[in-house]
Design a protein around this nucleic acid. Structure first.
Length: 430
RNA sequence: GUGUUUGUAACUCAAUUGGUAGAGUGUCAGGUUGUGAUCCUGAAUGUUGUGGGUUCAAGUCCCAUCAAACACCCCA
């Protein structure tokens, strides 16, 4: 085979894949609009330092970077949040708060691919800026849940795991763990799920150099319920935040979806408070969505202090989950009406009819070559057309036209005068 | 960057201990100038991912390379 392949980690979207992608996108859009979010977009490439400023120089390894003809260092965007923060920072106080924006960016990361991970992919990003209360976090979690529910998934398929970086930090400080140890400890925590319990505990002991302390940390991390954590520190503000969050989620009718999970820390990210991830119940995919609070990012880009929270969900893992659950929609029809003809000399008449139909707003097509009627029907089938209109046949001598409904197989005669109204009837109940 | 597995027709796969590639599906043409399926007949398509090596002989063994899948690292 000598045809060129697309670059590593990219996908071609043939019509079949494209319609599946559009199915996901339109569900995302519908849900965001239902919640009162506005769509925005930004350049697909940005100045490199937009990303290094937030994530450090090392991030460049993971980016598609290039120089333009004036030697500006640029990068294809690996995520949307920096662009969003930049845009909000630039408008400053002129921007009416709260900002409720969403976007469906195409993103690029130079990574080694594996299951659920490509180099070019799409994300839904949803963000609220200007609200410091957890009501914003709750609203975002609700949107995240409803994007999945709208696609046909429910709490048998996925759940939301919520934690708080502040809470963990408070608990660790209470145990007199030095402040500079906390970030590395978060990193260690992120691995918890991958390690067997005793191995993880050993690593804790090694890291903290104190067996009793390690045991205490280990016990906190193994708390089975939120109540156990509340008991440790009932008056802490982050505990109150979480309590409020769970109460609000209950009023969204989504309490069944949300669980407290102290193991969620979201890597090295810029998150500052509540963090959450949506995971499939079987846990055999990577996170479906993730998000949280990032109150310092806007000011990092020179904007005024702006509380902010958001989440992102990628198309790759989601598509895998939907396929695993068998939730893949039928291919849409290419055209509603297929015009077939018994008379192969009849091309111009077919074009005239097609033109008349199209001018009236109908979606229709016809074979572009003279072929036997059987083949025409196969084409109509392949186009998933809803009805076939037969032309050039004997019926025309009595001013009738035969129509076949391809879904039921039923055929019927209509007079030429009532063709359009009958077609409208036939196509409207689909 | 590290490791494991894989690569044969458009697709899914076959090919005994090494003996110069085959089936099904699909496609196209016809049976069929009044109907999507089924049936029948016929046709086309491969430098076996690529490049070397061993051998009288390589799809098969060896090396390299490219690509893919999965895991580690990382995950915004």
């Amino acid at each position: 085979m000598q045809t060129p392949l697309p670059p590593k980690g990219t996908r071609d979207f043939y019509p079949e894949e494209m319609s599946f992608r559009e199915h996901i996108f339109s569900s995302w859009e519908k849900t965001c609009q239902r919640y009162g979010f506005e769509k925005f977009d930004a350049p697909i490439f940005e100045h490199l330092d937009l990303y290094t400023k937030k994530s450090g120089e090392e991030i460049e390894k993971q980016l598609y970077t290039f120089e333009d003809k004036s030697n500006r260092k640029l990068s294809l965007r690996p995520e949307m949040t920096p662009s969003l923060a930049r845009m909000v920072a630039a408008k400053g106080p002129a921007l009416k708060k709260p900002v409720r924006w969403y976007s469906i960016p195409r993103l690029f990361r130079y990574e080694k691919m594996q299951k659920g991970r490509l180099r070019e992919f799409f994300q839904l990003n949803v963000d609220i800026l200007g609200v410091k209360e957890v009501t914003a976090d709750a609203e975002l979690i609700a949107v995240a849940i409803d994007t999945l529910r709208d696609l046909g998934l429910d709490n048998n398929d996925f759940s939301v795991h919520v934690s708080s970086r502040n809470l963990l930090e408070e608990l660790f400080l209470q145990l007199s763990i030095p402040k500079e140890s906390i970030k590395p400890l978060f990193l260690l925590l992120d691995k918890q799920q991958k390690l067997p319990k005793d191995v993880f505990k050993k690593e804790l002991e090694i890291f903290l150099k104190d067996q009793r302390l390690a045991t205490k940390v280990f016990d906190i991390l193994n708390a089975q319920s939120f109540d156990e954590i509340v008991a440790i520190n009932p008056s802490s503000p982050s505990v109150k935040d979480l309590q409020n969050l769970f109460t609000v989620m209950d009023h969204y009718g989504l309490a069944d979806y949300v669980t407290f999970d102290i193991g969620i820390v979201r890597g090295l990210a810029y998150y500052t408070g509540i963090v959450f991830e949506l995971m499939d119940k079987n846990r055999d995919l990577r996170a479906i969505a993730g998000g949280g609070r990032y109150d310092r990012l806007v000011s990092l880009y020179g904007g005024e202090d702006t509380p902010a929270a958001g989440f992102a969900t990628g198309d790759v893992v989601l598509a895998e989950l939907l396929k695993a659950k068998g939730i893949v929609p039928d291919q849409p029809s290419r055209s509603d009406i297929f015009i077939a003809t018994f008379n192969r000399e009849n091309y111009n008449q077919v074009v005239s009819l097609a033109n008349a139909l199209r001018q009236r707003g109908y979606s229709c097509e016809f074979p572009l070559r003279p072929i036997p009627i059987g083949k025409q029907m196969k084409l109509a089938s392949a186009a998933r057309s809803k009805v076939v209109i037969f032309t050039g046949g004997q019926e025309e001598k009595e001013d009738n036209i035969k129509i076949k409904d391809m879904r039921s197989g039923e055929e019927f005669l209509v007079s030429k005068d009532e063709l359009y109204t009958k077609l409208a009837d036939r196509l409207s109940n689909s």
